[in-house]
Design a protein around this nucleic acid. Sequence first.
DNA 1: CGATGGCTTGACATTCATCAATGTATGTGG
DNA 2: CCACATACATTGATGAATGTCAAGCCATCG
Lengths: 246, 246
Amino acid sequence: MHQDLASTALAPCLPRKQQAPAATCPELANYLPLGDNELTRLMAIARPVPVAAHRRLFLDGEPADDTFLLSSGAVRTFRLLPDGRRLITAFMFEGDFLGFTVDGRYEFAAETITPARLCRIPRRRLDALLDDCPRLRNALLHFATEELRLAQDHMVLLGRKSATEKLASFLLHLARRHARDGRTTEPMQVPLPMTRGDVADHLGLTTETVSRTLTQLRATGAIDIPSLRSVTVLHPGALAALADGG
Amino acid sequence: MHQDLASTALAPCLPRKQQAPAATCPELANYLPLGDNELTRLMAIARPVPVAAHRRLFLDGEPADDTFLLSSGAVRTFRLLPDGRRLITAFMFEGDFLGFTVDGRYEFAAETITPARLCRIPRRRLDALLDDCPRLRNALLHFATEELRLAQDHMVLLGRKSATEKLASFLLHLARRHARDGRTTEPMQVPLPMTRGDVADHLGLTTETVSRTLTQLRATGAIDIPSLRSVTVLHPGALAALADGG
DNA sequence: CGATGGCTTGACATTCATCAATGTATGTGG
DNA sequence: CCACATACATTGATGAATGTCAAGCCATCG
């Protein structure tokens, strides 16, 4: 079902020398607090990669040859158990770094959910650049730290929250993230690019429970569900109260 | 119940200038692959802190003024929900770094489980040292990365494993960790410094379920439980098979 | 030696998973 | 453009895993 990315979306990028002006990733500037010089050097090694929906970017355990900046679209990162059970460790959106590792192997698999644009940064070159670019190093360290913080939050969610609390927390998280990136509509309409099954595999539930719990949340008036792929947060306060059993 | 550390164990360290030869942390050398020069500089800012059992080291959200290296004993790191539910994000042992953060606030709370010895490293001085000590920076980055990898593993455990799988995974993890640090006995006897309640709060279960599941595991012959605070892994293969439903 | 906290075991309750049927959106080929 | 196929979503009925409540046991520590 899932084609390997290397043979499809990434392939067109490999023969870089043929196109006279190599494509660049100007959007890097939007996500990294860097000086002109550092940005120029980073852009020199980054290449834009458009990827279709539902394509695998990499698998966990593979050599981590590239780091990616996601500049549009949504990605899921996950781990599988031998029998196929899946846990989606995170959903990634515009501005997130993906696949940055220090020990040379990806720690999770990643697939696009929607069509996406990525900036692909070869690891060897990035490492070299990091050596004398403290601000970039710092920026990546901040991303890694944030990732760890989110992982801690999520462990609490997975280990100690009820289905309702899980959904409320998740929707709030999505809403905040969406507000952070883009525009804040009132009432806040939040896109849900992932399926109910994806949500279930992120929250440690089943599709059915996600569906039922969303229906219940709608019944409380905290949210509305105008379409399958979006949720309107009508009452953030109520949702926040539900999110940790307050 | 839990006294604040600052008023007790840490206090003797604060007036550093009074003791003629300031105490040092020679054990840092055991855990960090550093050159003599870097090690000397790190030891110059690190101070040993003995801490009794069941003392709080810090709370999540507090200013992260110190980073610690745990040189003996066991520590639990955790988060609390407003109503008191607890999730223990990790157990820390000899050689683990604790409280290293980039944004100035601790991301979780930490308490000793047993009496412990810590090397306390003031954050401001550590940051300064990191700026021109790439190997130390690299070592800390590796620790942070490892922490993230463990967090991913644990999310899979919390979200997708049964009680039996959780306990089997946990015991294997402890056994491997113990083998890595210290000596490997045959059959492998693994200390369990934490209570059943701690284990439950780490695995997203209740004390009762932990107790029952351990009894079941013993019945399978995979482990023995010679005392409340230790487990003997009789059949690592069987335990590994149980750990992910293989 | 008694008290306290931790552990185990049992009976029962509850949440959520499972199984099953139906409904709905999406995309494709005729 | 429509009809169909497919994947996804919802809803209901049922069951299993685990939580809750309760009692008693055991170990440790003053």
